[in-house]
């Protein structure tokens, strides 16, 4: 792995946040080498909400998995720095059902803390806080199969936040939800995130979602995944999902991104 565990303190040129340089990932498949991610460079300033949109199969999930350390890059470097010399921690919110069916809601949400052998009082406080924040306190003893899809995704968000990491990686966490639930959970995510303002990299195929949540939106090309454009989203925080959608500027940004994505989506569909 090319990823340094910590940033050398002497390296003053290194900004805090996530710096990715010339990241490439190729997979060996039956039909030969496939380049999923091609020479991607990006910078996510610490404390910002960074969203990535792109057509399906553009390698955005692969980028996130490399950032989270679940895949090793073929080449390129990833540097995550918080300015302190402690190792940087991250929590991922996965696409799809990632809860352990054999643990109840409380134990699922406490998983990260338990794996770190956190103090009992810390676990009680952190998990209690985020279950409350996500409206799950009443369901602490329920098992995942007793919950709706929206509630299960709330648990996995609570699990990531309760772990109190330096960085969050979110892989289309709301893609399986219906429109109403999605809006509610986006709103909740914004409220929860605004408390701590930790760095977030959030992947989505929804332009709307990318703009609502992000400080910056990175648009990717169809396979092989490259950076097409990074657009700044100037709306102030705290944001309200509904109010945001009313603003004329919002429509313009969404339009811009769509215009830029259109060729890619059409290209990918052919």
């Amino acid at each position: 792995m090319q990823r340094p565990a910590t940033t050398p303190l002497s390296d003053t040129a290194q900004a805090t946040g996530i710096t990715v340089t010339n990241l490439t990932k190729t997979f060996n498949t039956d039909s030969g080498l496939v380049t999923a991610v091609d020479n991607v460079s990006l910078h996510v300033p610490e404390g910002s909400f960074f969203t990535i949109v792109g057509p399906s199969g553009c390698g955005k999930t692969t980028i996130l998995r490399m950032l989270a350390g679940l895949e090793t890059p073929t080449s390129g470097t990833i540097n995550v720095s918080t300015g302190s010399d402690k190792p940087v921690t991250n929590s991922m919110v996965f696409q799809g059902d990632s809860l352990f069916p054999w643990m109840n809601v409380w134990d699922n949400a406490a998983y990260g803390l338990k794996m770190r052998n956190a103090a009992k009082a810390t676990i009680r406080e952190q998990v209690g806080h985020y279950l409350n924040k996500t409206g799950l306190t009443k369901f602490a003893k329920a098992y995942p199969h007793q919950l709706s899809g929206g509630m299960r995704q709330r648990v996995s968000i609570a699990r990531a936040f309760a772990n109190d990491p330096d960085v969050f990686y979110m892989d289309e966490p709301f893609s399986a939800l219906d429109e109403q639930n999605k809006t509610i959970l986006q709103e909740e995510l914004l409220r929860t995130w605004e408390e701590s303002r930790k760095t977030v990299v959030f992947i989505t195929h929804s332009v709307d979602e990318a703009v609502i949540l992000g400080d910056e939106v990175m648009i990717m090309t169809a396979r092989p995944g490259r950076v097409k454009k990074v657009i700044e989203v100037p709306f102030e925080r705290p944001r309200s999902v509904l109010e945001l959608r009313r603003q004329p500027e919002y429509g313009e940004i969404v339009y811009d991104i769509w215009a830029s994505l259109k060729d890619e989506v059409v290209g990918a569909a052919l």
Partner: peptide, 27 residues
Amino acid sequence: QIHHDVGKNFKASRLQVFRTIAVPAAT
């Protein structure tokens, strides 16, 4: 696989994976 990924992401040790993922899932 996603459950293994969760274990890895939350830095579960081999013993922790054994205890919290493998045993209950296989029960």
